[in-house]
Design a protein around this nucleic acid. Structure first.
Lengths: 230, 230
DNA sequence: CCAAAAGTGTTGTCTTTACACCCATGG
DNA sequence: CCATGGGTGTAAAGACAACACTTTTGG
């Protein structure tokens, strides 16, 4: 039938906390040619009787021992005939997000790489990651997608770190709080976290009101008025 | 190698002018099983040595005699194993836009169908069209994509019709003009069009400042301030 | 008491909608 | 001169960024 392979590619992201939160992407070192020994995104073929979504889940589990993405969505499909020098391969990329408090038991080949300092990568995987980051950045602005990177409960300071890591620029905590409150994305949890290392007022903890992906700020320009309830 | 087909699907849209502009999608009647005799989106296989973009262009030209899309972009890739009852097929959908003043010489099998009143369609093509419309609606709000549906020169009234057809709701001409002017999307052409059938002041004509797809109103929430030029 | 961090109040700017009003033309 | 549509002016509402100010902790 077809004379080429169709595979899925996964761009799995995670926010590693620390002084300044960093966004990490999950890659593994290739064992076989082409590009043996180089870093590449997890990938694998789609079987005749499975959807691409099932294939992504299956390959992530079998290759890296990863289960339980908080969010998964399809990205572009890459079809340049030259993208795989070994055999013609069409690849559909997926974005996967892992909460920062998830307990993972990955195989030893798995490597988390900082997205701000990507190494050389096999195939066009560099492009794929860039594209995934661009998509993620957009969604941070008008959806509640941060729930899929944030832990179940968090302080505004740590959430700020996640936003900064994902967006790639500074974010004002004050305004972040108010934007998310206005959109109904977050709510206060009663408890207080401990004070920081150098003292200071203890922060309250927050959680996302929903763990379902939602567009909370749909594009409105030229929209039918929101004032006059139709 | 693979045990299934990979094809491209095209959702080609056009604004048919008239009293009220209508958005039309290009379909054709299938000759072969499955779904012989039913309406379906133009589609076809991807060859080993061509990209999917080339395949879309090729199939549109050979099947329907269509050339010269003003805009083309990739949509989702559909991989449900059950979506083609005959043989397993993965399909990548593309959105194509045709300006309303384009001269077309389509083959007789081609049919333009109003998107607000879609007939029964083969496979999951109904879903594909819905998804394409959703994407188009979003882009009308924050990009200059209307240039690809509008004629080279137009009056604000006729552009309003295109916006209403694409967005599916009423649009205030006054505000449309100002939004597009502020974003630098349109500019006035000197000439005046003739008055309408029942008299009235003759409208001036306008054109898009660019015929390249551009994001003119990127999402800004939580963005790095636009005031302080970094 | 002071530094540090959290959280609140306030202000100014920009975008968008709604709608009143003026302008130019055909009949 | 009046109906018909084109076009401009303007006000009100909302969203956002910036930043000063208050609160609560550790040392």
């Amino acid at each position: 039938m077809a004379k080429y392979r169709h595979e899925v590619l996964a761009v799995v992201l995670r926010a590693a906390d620390g002084e300044q939160a960093r966004l990490k992407v999950l890659v593994r070192r290739r064992e076989h040619e082409p590009f043996a020994g180089e870093l590449a995104l997890p990938s694998g073929p789609v079987e005749v009787d499975e959807s691409m979504e099932d294939a992504v889940t299956r390959h992530l589990a079998s290759q890296l021992g990863l289960a339980g993405l908080a969010h998964r969505e399809q990205l572009e499909t890459y079809s340049d005939p030259e993208r795989d020098p070994f055999e013609r391969t069409i690849a559909t990329a997926y974005l996967g997000l892992v909460p920062s408090d998830a307990e993972l038991s990955l195989v030893s080949e798995a490597v988390w790489v900082d997205v701000t300092d990507l190494p050389e990568m096999a195939f066009d995987h560099h492009l794929v990651i860039e594209s995934a980051l661009k998509r993620l950045r957009g969604k941070f602005s008008y959806t509640n997608i941060a729930f899929a990177l944030a832990p179940a409960e968090f302080t505004m300071a740590s959430l700020r770190g996640i936003y900064e890591a994902a967006l790639g620029h500074e974010v004002d905590v004050t305004n972040l709080l108010r934007v998310l409150q206005r959109r109904g994305q977050i709510e206060r949890v009663g408890t207080l976290a401990g004070s920081g290392a150098r003292g200071g007022r203890p922060p309250s903890t927050w959680k996302f009101t929903s763990n379902e992906y939602q567009v909370t700020d749909p594009f409105a320009a030229l929209g039918p008025g929101r004032r006059t309830t139709v």
